[in-house]
Design a protein around this nucleic acid. Sequence first.
RNA 1: GCGCCUGUAGCUCAGUCGGAUAGAGCACUCGCCUUCUAAGCGAGUUGUCGCAGGUUCGAUUCCUGCCAGGCGCGCCA
Length: 553
Amino acid sequence: MSGAILRALALAVSSQELPGGLLLPDQVVLERPKNRGHGDYATSIALALAKPAEMNPRAVAEILRTYLLADQEIKGAISSIEIAGPGFINITLARAGQGAIIAAILSAGDRYGHGNALQGVRINLEFVSANPTGPLHLGHTRWAAVGDALGRVLSAAGATVTREFYINDRGNQMELFGASLRAAAQGVAVPEDGYHGQYINEIAAQIMQAHPEYLSLPDGESFDAFRDAGYSLQLADQQRVLAGFRTHFDIWFSERSLYENNFFQHCLDRLRSQGHVYEEGGAMWLRTTDFGDDKDRVMVKSDGAFAYFASDSAYYISKRERGFDICIYMLGADHHGYVNRLKAIAACAGDDPTYNIDALIGQLVKIMENGEELKLSKRAGTIITLEELVEKVGVDAARYTLIRYPVDTPMVMDVDVLRSRTNENPVYYVQYAHARICAVLRNASDLGILFGADQIHPELLQDERERELIGALAEFPRVVAGAAELREPHRIARYAEELAGIYHRFYADCRVLPMGDEPMTDLHRARATLCSATARVIANSLELLGVSAPEKM
RNA sequence: GCGCCUGUAGCUCAGUCGGAUAGAGCACUCGCCUUCUAAGCGAGUUGUCGCAGGUUCGAUUCCUGCCAGGCGCGCCA
C-alpha cells in the first residue's frame, strides 16, 4: 500500500501534475485512524507535500487519489479512497483483501508476524549480567523478562541474535565475596563492606560440607578456594533460576577470560593504535573525552591492577571482533552514567557509537503487597529475589507485567493485582481470550463445523466487529517490526491486550456457532475460521513475550 | 554544579519518528448468563496532556527556559 502511494507520487510528478522538483519521501507512513469513519488506513502525505509543492493539500490528495485508483497492483484490495478534512487520504479495504489477511495468517502459522526488517543484522544482546555473588533480585528480573522478550522480537524481525550474560567474576567484589564466605564458615563477623544475609551462611555451609579442608589452607589459598567455590554455586543457582523463568542465554561470558591469552593486551594495542591511550601518574588512560565523555577513564591503575573500565573496553572489542554489528546493553538506572563512556569506547576503537552501541536504561521496580512496599535492601539479607517473585505470582504474570511497561518508566508491581483473576490483571485478560477461542473451536469441531483456509468467505464477514477484528490481525506484523526497531517489546503486550479486547467484543456481538437446531451455514464456518486466525495471532504475541497461551483456563 | 529518566482522568499507566473528537484498566452508577468459557460484554461520569515561550497549516508529541520527583557523577566494581 505504501508502495502504491509512492508509485502514485512518482507518476504525478512525471506527468507534471505535481512540480518536478518536488522531493519525494523514501516511504509513506500509513496509520490506522482511531475513528472508524476514516477508513482502514490513512495518510497525511498530501498535507506534508502541500507546502513544498506550493499547492492546496486537498488538490494534492485528489491527484494522488486518481493515480491510486488506477494502480493495477492494489486494484482489487481497495474498496474506496476518500479525501477528508484538510487533505487526509482515507483508504478503505475491500472484503477480498480482508480474506487475504486471514489466509496469510493461517498459512504462516507460528511465523505470522515475522519479518525481515533486521535481516542480516548480527546483534549481541547483553542483559542481566549479575555479579555471581548473590541471588538475582527484582532489577535483574525486569531485565530477564524484557531482555528475553526483546531477543524474541529481534529474532522475529529477522536479526541474528546472540543472548549474552556477562559474569563479573573478577575484582574487589569477588574478593569480598570470598572473604565473607570464609568468615561465615569460621563463624566470625563478616567484613563490614562484605556480603551479608542468610544466603551467605547457607553457601558457606554447603562449601564446608563438601570441602571442610578449605578452612585449614593458608590464608591466601583459603580465600581463593571459598571465592571460587561460592562463585560456582551462585552461578549455577542463577542459571537454574533463569531457566525456570524461561530466559535463555547463548553465551555466559566470563570477565576473567578477557585477561587470558593476551586478549587485553591486544585490545590495548588496538586502542593505542587509534591514538586514544596515554599514561599519566603511572596509570594507563583512555582519552574518552575525545568523544563526549566528561572525563578520561583509567584502564590500568598506577598499582598495575586493571580498573573495571579495562574490562568494559576489552569486552566491547571482544563483541565486535566476534562479528556483532550492534551491541545492545541493558543497564540499570544506576548505571546510566556508563552510556557515554561505552559510546566513547566504541569511538576510540574506530567504530560508530550511534550504530554499534545501543544502550537501554531500565528504571527501578518496586513491589507492593497488602498495600505496602516490600523493601529491597540489596546485600543486606532482605532482598526480594526473582525466585520469590515467581513463587508469589507465577512465571507468566511476573514476565508479562514486567514486559508491559516501557523500561524507562519506574514501575510498581502489585502482588495482589497479579494474583487476581479479573480485568485489572492484563495477563489473564489476554490468556483468557485465547482459552475462550480454543473452547469455541473445540465445540466447532465437535459439531463437525469445517473451518480453515478454504472456509474464509470474506464476503460474509460484514459486521463492524468482524472488520475491526480483521483489521487488528492485519496490524500484527507492523507491531512486531516496530517493537524490534524501537527495542520496545512492551508494544507487543499492549497490542495483545487490544486484540483480546476486540475479540471479546466480537464474541459478544457475533455468534460463532449455530444455536440449537439452527442449520450450519458458511457464516458459521467463516466466523470459526476468523476465530482460529485470532487465536493464532494471540498465541504468537504471547510467544514473543515468553508467556504461555493456555487452551483451557 | 553537570548528566540521564519521569510529570497525561480520583488511582495505576498507555499513546508521542507532528495529524482529524487524547485512550485503557481500576474506582463509582446501572444493565447483560434457559445455548459458544461472566477470568467476559455494554451504557454513564472523569482531563489547564507540569508551567511558559518558540517552530508549524496543525504541538500532549519537536526546540528553549523554568518547576517538581527519581537516579547518577571514584585510579569502587
